[in-house]
Nucleic acid binder design. Structure first.
Lengths: 217, 217
DNA sequence: ACTTGATTGAAACGATTGTTTGAAACACGT
DNA sequence: ACGTGTTTCAAACAATCGTTTCAATCAAGT
């Protein structure tokens, strides 16, 4: 099969965009095939049916989306810097707010909020490893905390980050699309890190202006 | 029209549950009518079509769901206590994690994450007032902060709260449904308040155990 | 050229959807 | 009892969806 851009590949790409935009139910097989420049029957020929296509797309989104190999190296960093690195990585790669927000991220976000049976796989392969990494950091910060407290501390971090992906549309109407887009990945990562470190007693309280924040690091 | 439980009322209730469970597209008019014990044509007779029914259900969810009149009285409280009261109110009423999670909350949450054209109304009537209230508190905490910093501070609070509604299914698979359900509204409200107050310098860093938290209040 | 297997194409199928229809049943003022 | 306007009902309609069909097309081995 020495082809340069086979129909099957184009279908996966087109299906990814369609599923991410519309969701599984609203995504139309006809629209996917049209995007891919393929015939209507191509989906059923290459993937069997719509559901199997969706699973393969989700698998592709996991592979090409947030790259596990770019997970921050947490070797010789201090605890505070580990946390800062985790947050920066999460914002930029998992949330996908740094680059052009890819269909991969939107698709995974849909699966989180409105799960299909494919969620189990997604948790096992992508979400849990990251969560365990954060949990390890939190245990380092608070060695004598019980499991429940560790959990909610992790959720406080993840919740802050994920909010910018989940509630994007509401934010646009709340503070204006221009001001929402002005919240760059770097700014958000910095804010959430400062906020979290201060809450954990690893840094000073969140300052009023950017200058004050910088004055301590 | 002196009736005790008219078809129109039963349809709104049934439609609310159906839309909340399945979402707008997956919700079936036939299922709604079956739940309401009404005829298939009842929807079109009383509401015109499915979309107008959805709008009226959303309006009903806004009225009977998170009650604006129960918004915390923020009169003579200190800034820290205002924030604590806001968070507790948000967790218990808006997230709906306190009582049985009603279809009203699930429906509104769907509208936030995956908006329909009805979002504009929802923001204007329900979300913006609450957001402005939080923004006022934050301005009180950081009088010299610019608008952008006020925004992200508010989002840090809301993001922490909303996460327990948005990612419930993922949490179940991540820490187990039993441990997730053990996170009561009171516990979460207390944690998020402590976390946020510490981040703002209005309280001590988040402690390792519950006892240490209590020792300062 | 012919065969074989994999792929593409246009058209149709069957099921399900929201919606409409027109008659029957009901409520109620006269 | 009658007439009138409202509400319910079973049935069908039109549109759309995912899926299937089967012939046409292509690539490569012989």
């Amino acid at each position: 099969m020495p082809e340069q851009d086979p129909t099957k590949t184009r279908l996966l790409e087109a299906a990814g965009r369609e599923f991410a935009e519309k969701g599984y139910e609203l995504a139309r097989v006809r629209a996917i095939c049209e995007r891919a420049g393929a015939n209507l029957a191509a989906v059923n020929y290459h993937f069997g049916d719509k559901e199997q296509l969706y699973r393969e797309v989700l698998l592709e989104a996991h592979r090409c989306g947030p790259d596990p190999s770019t997970a921050p190296e947490l070797g010789a960093l201090s605890t505070a810097e580990k946390l800062r690195a985790f947050i920066a990585h999460f914002i930029e790669h998992v949330i996908g707010l740094g680059d052009t927000d890819s269909w991969q991220n939107r698709l995974i976000m849909r699966e989180i909020v409105d799960p299909t049976p494919a969620l189990e796989f997604l948790v096992r392969e992508s979400i849990r490893p990251r969560f365990e990494a954060l949990r390890a950091i939190m245990r380092e910060v608070r060695p004598d905390a019980d499991a429940q407290r560790i959990d909610v501390l992790c959720f406080s971090v993840i919740g802050q980050c994920l909010h910018y992906k989940v509630a994007t549309r509401v934010m646009d109407r709340l503070i204006g699309a221009d001001r929402r887009e002005a919240l760059t990945a770097a700014y958000l990562a910095d804010h959430i890190a400062e906020f979290t470190l201060a809450a954990l007693g690893l840094g000073p309280p969140v300052a009023s202006s950017e200058a004050q924040v910088r004055s301590q690091s």
